[in-house]
Design a binder for these strands. Structure first.
Length: 642
RNA sequence: GCCACCAUAGCUCAGCUGGUAGAGCGGCUGAUUUGUAAUCAGCGGGUCGCGGGUUCGAUCCCUGCUGGUGGCUCCA
């Protein structure tokens, strides 16, 4: 009998081991230490994630994946989704399994089941999962040919799996994972046994179309999460709680900023005085920043005749998002979903010379888009919203510089609101709905990428995510909970300038077609305010706070004097509120704290006599007693800081 | 739009298996005249989202609608 051939295994620290061929990563882990073996979930063999029990048959670099490895979480989540599917199949044998991947911090599994699961079902499933985990059932991989698998899953009645197998490329290895009575088509890798799952929770059910296509059957999805320890699970659940606490809909109500009312219509925002003030402050700032950068303000109607939208291509490519038309004196009018055709009209009002370019038209234009009722969400997704819109019309030579300026402008602008982390995407040509030659798309996309490269901005590609009229740069901002929100969009457009026959006279005295860029920095003011609320909990910096100060007399005896001070603040354009209620000082302060008013100016008997005020800063408390002018200077200085 | 869940006073919510509703906060009135996150007392306030049905009787059961919430191409 010939001796078993040896192979060399190289560990991450460079150490090498000579082992029998066919040794598994599990055995390697065990030979290093029992502790490592106990914590091992999978292995990375030559850069490839594999199961712990796959035999290694050649010299390899081997890294044992433990709970602490960055790759571990996805594997754990994915394996937990299999345990869930196993529990579901045991409890509901007629349910058909479909797909069940890991997503960020969570997993889901979609089932075709009648009737759909309820919350009580989730408890039952969770209990059964605990039993499966307690039984520590081994999870093993097997590979099969396409035919074998088709038959296998067809025999099991798992028609969705059969369909999936059909859609997998010929050259891929087909594998299944089996744990006890449950077998699932899966690429893996998976944990070696169900007992490796230490902490999990099922979160909620949801409907989801098979393959995400609304023409397909609606499946029942269960979301869940899993972590290496109870502690980490709790931390994640706390994060979800914190997100709830920051919900802009809740804060918007308690701070009296806005409402969305059934009587008015879904997705339509009613701004209360405080919310409208907040919006106005943002708008004022926005206008200042644009005028400083050479933009010109324009203002355009809310509706326009159908031929305008015909020419722009909106009726061809964007109709599904537009509200139905209205007939006026025999003509058909549409409510604008975008401002661009109007801005083009302004451009075309006279002959333009290359010396005039770039021309930059800016407008806080309110647009209306028909969004499906199911996707509406507070201020984040509405049907009527104000875009901080601008159109830059320039020569081809100017394009690069203009894009760079725009990206930098966006970063600078958004940083002012306390956001410092960005994700940048370049979105390319959509698969079906697009206008223009593919070659032009290529060229324009390259121009966007070139500009970003030039200023060293890292970005990811969003394939097929472009607008119908051109590729775009999208900037997402990260909030305090590390969630990202789409705000800035910089869209190249070679479609409209052609459709509307825009032109300028170049230095060669010939007519040329200009380039056009659409862009919005905040995107939608509504959404931006929503993000701002969630990021700050409604505790706005003083320059943004709709009410910057509360003037609070200690007793009614100081009402007269306090009112005078209040008037001084108003004269200085400080947004202030006078609390003359017959409440104790404690109650009046509490009220101001809850309404997140940053400054409180308190006047008692002593202050009334000396013409001073006691300053109290929200959250941090008393700041001392100052004469009126000094007190006003203090708050004014903080407002100035922006 | 589709699936599930939800809808009670201005707000937050309670109301067991059907017998026409309650609390706290806010509001109003009065007392108190307050020194840095809730003074006390009293009083109002609801066709229980809307429309049908079952029932002697519906906030509760059934059904239609409206609105809200969580989701709906992150490949086995």
């Amino acid at each position: 009998m010939s001796p078993i051939p040896k192979i060399t295994v190289t560990l991450p620290d460079g150490a090498q081991m000579s082992v029998n061929t066919g040794t598994t990563a599990a055995e390697v882990a065990k030979s290093i230490s029992d502790g490592l073996f106990k914590n091992s979930l999978a292995a990375n063999v030559n850069g490839q994630l594999v199961d712990l029990y796959i035999p290694i048959t050649a010299d390899s670099k081997v890294e044992v994946i433990t709970y602490k490895s960055p790759e571990a979480h996805d594997i754990l989540l994915h394996s937990t989704s299999h345990v869930m599917a196993q529990a579901v199949k045991q409890l509901f044998p007629t349910a058909k399994v479909t797909i069940g991947p890991a997503i960020e911090n969570r997993f889901y599994y979609d089932f075709d089941v009648e009737p759909p699961f309820t919350d009580e079902d989730l408890d039952k499933i969770e209990k059964r999962m605990q039993e499966i985990i307690a039984a520590d059932i081994p999870v093993r991989r097997e590979e099969y040919t396409r035919d074998e698998l088709q038959k296998k899953f067809a025999a099991m009645g798992e028609t969705y799996k059969v369909e999936i197998i059909e859609s997998i490329a010929d050259n891929e290895v087909l594998s299944v994972y089996t744990q006890g009575d449950f077998t699932d088509l899966c690429r893996g890798p998976h944990i070696p046994s169900t007992g490796k799952i230490k902490a999990f929770k099922l979160l909620n059910t949801a409907g989801a179309y098979w393959r995400g296509d609304s023409r397909n059957k609606m499946l029942t999805r269960i979301y869940g999460t899993a972590f290496p320890s109870e502690k980490e699970l709790r931390k994640y659940l706390n994060f979800l709680e914190e997100a709830k606490r920051r919900d802009h809909r809740k804060i918007g109500k308690s701070l009296e900023l806005f409402e969305i009312n059934e009587q008015v219509g879904p997705g339509l925002v009613i701004w209360y005085p405080r919310g409208a003030m907040l919006l106005q402050i943002i708008k004022d700032y926005w206008i200042r920043e644009h005028l400083e950068r050479g933009y010109e303000l324009v203002q355009t109607p809310h509706i326009g005749k159908s031929n305008l939208w015909e020419t722009s291509g909106h009726l061809g490519f964007y109709r599904e998002f537009m509200f139905d038309s209205m007939k006026i004196e025999g003509d058909e009018y549409f409510i604008k979903p975008m401002n661009c055709p109007f801005h083009i009209q302004v451009y075309k009002s006279k002959t333009r010379s290359y010396r005039d370019l770039p021309i930059k038209y800016a407008e806080l234009g309110t647009v209306y888009r028909y969004e499906l009722s199911g996707v509406l969400h507070g201020l984040m997704r509405v049907r009527g919203f104000t875009q901080d819109d601008a159109h830059i019309i320039c020569t081809p030579e100017q394009l690069n510089e203009e894009i760079i300026k725009l990206v930098q402008f966006s970063f600078d602008y958004i940083r002012k609101f306390g956001f410092n982390e960005f994700e940048v995407f370049v979105a390319t040509k959509p698969k079906d709905k697009y206008v223009g030659e593919p070659a032009k798309w290529e060229e324009a996309t390259a121009a966007l990428r070139y500009a970003l490269d030039e200023i060293n901005v890292e970005y990811a590609l969003d394939e097929g995510g472009g607008a119908f009229y051109g590729p775009k740069i999208d900037i997402k901002i990260k909030d305090a909970l590390n969630r990202s929100w789409q705000c800035t969009t910089i869209q190249f457009d070679f479609n409209l300038s052609e459709r509307f026959k825009m032109e300028y006279i170049a230095s060669d005295n010939e007519k040329h077609q200009p380039y056009m860029i659409h862009r919005a920095i905040m995107g939608s003011l509504e959404r931006f305010v929503g993000v701002l609320i969630e990021n700050t909990l409604g505790d706005f910096p003083v320059w943004l706070a709709p009410v910057q100060a509360a003037v609070i007399p200690i007793s009614e005896n100081q009402n007269e004097v306090a009112k005078q001070f209040h008037n001084r603040l108003i004269e200085k354009s400080i947004r202030t509120e006078f609390n003359s209620k017959n409440d104790t000082i404690g109650a009046k302060i509490r009220e101001a704290e809850l309404m997140k008013i940053p400054y409180m100016f308190i006047i008692g008997e002593r202050e009334a006599q000396d013409c001073t005020v006691s300053i109290r800063r929200r959250k941090s408390g008393q700041k001392g007693v100052y004469d009126w002018e000094k007190a006003i200077a203090i708050i004014a200085a903080e407002i100035e800081k922006q």
